[in-house]
């Protein structure tokens, strides 16, 4: 198996605001990601599983070069997130709730705009747009301003926009958040299709069923640390994923 992502000792500490310090018991900083290392292989769906505040989003933001790590590095398809962020950006597609689309514009306009920013040739972009809009059911809403789209339609548009450059490496943070079962299925089916086309997907979630349905390998993070890393089959060999997760969580808390 070909390694496409190597994460080495990734660290991120946030400075806390004065008010936040009191709530956190006086600490001036918060270790959101604490010495995280893992590898993902080409053509797999890698799941980051963790409870709220575990550091999943922070990890993915670093991989997508939106924020810089304080320590460690990650290499995506040969490009370092620390020394070559522009190289990384052109290779990946990133989806997270923090990235918003401008309310004023229509899906049609935004798709064209981001295609141009990624230097996708006009004809390729047009063809890709047609296909993507159809498979996500955006075609009927292509001329509706983002402001007037439903939450689910906005999320689907965000997914489509994050893939305008047809990236080989896809980073999705909670891709099914806020979606109904039907729409969520469209998304999970599409992720499976991406894998079938040889793309690598790394996704984060706290939804066990999503991991069980999609992922080849899983990393479990709690409090910014990786507490388990294995194939889904191995992790769920003795008991189901949920029970396994509770065991992990308990042993971590007992250690402290």
């Amino acid at each position: 198996m070909e390694e496409i992502l190597q994460v080495k000792n990734l660290k991120k500490t946030f400075k806390l605001s004065r008010k936040q310090r009191k709530l956190e018991g006086g600490a001036a900083t918060k270790k959101a990601v604490d010495d995280l290392s893992f590898t993902a292989y080409k053509g797999e769906i890698f799941g980051l599983l963790g409870p709220n505040g575990a550091g999943k989003t922070t990890t993915l933001r670093m991989l997508a070069t939106l924020i810089k790590p304080d320590g460690g590095d990650a290499v995506i398809d040969g490009k370092s997130i620390v020394s070559d962020p522009y190289g990384v950006r052109s290779k990946i597609g990133f989806l997270t709730s923090e990235l918003k689309l401008e309310d004023f514009f229509t899906p049609n306009y935004l798709y064209g705009y981001f295609s141009r920013l990624y230097n996708v040739p006009e004809d390729v972009a047009a063809e890709r747009k047609k296909k993507m809009f159809e498979s996500f059911g955006i075609d009927k809403f292509a001329e509706v301003k983002v402001a007037n789209l439903s939450t689910g339609m906005k999320q689907k548009l965000s997914i489509v926009i994050s893939l305008v450059n047809d990236p080989d490496f896809i980073i999705f943070d909670e891709p099914t958040n806020g979606l109904d079962v039907l729409t969520a299925k469209t998304v999970t089916d599409y992720l499976a299709e991406l894998r079938a086309n040889g793309k690598t997907v790394i996704l984060s979630t706290h939804i066990f069923s999503l991991i069980e349905k999609l992922c080849d390998r899983v990393g479990v993070i709690i409090d910014g640390r990786l507490v388990a890393l294995d194939t889904l089959a191995n992790l769920t060999a003795e008991k189901n994923l949920e029970d396994k997760f509770f065991d992990l969580y308990k042993s971590v808390k007992e250690e402290r």
Binding site: L66, Y86, E98, K100, D103, L117, Y118
Partner: peptide
């Protein structure tokens, strides 16, 4: 405005300098 609404972040993850 773009910062407040989170739309500039979308621009910053693209490879645009």
């Amino acid at each position: 405005g773009e910062k407040e609404r989170g739309t500039i972040a979308t621009l910053l993850v693209t490879p645009v300098k």
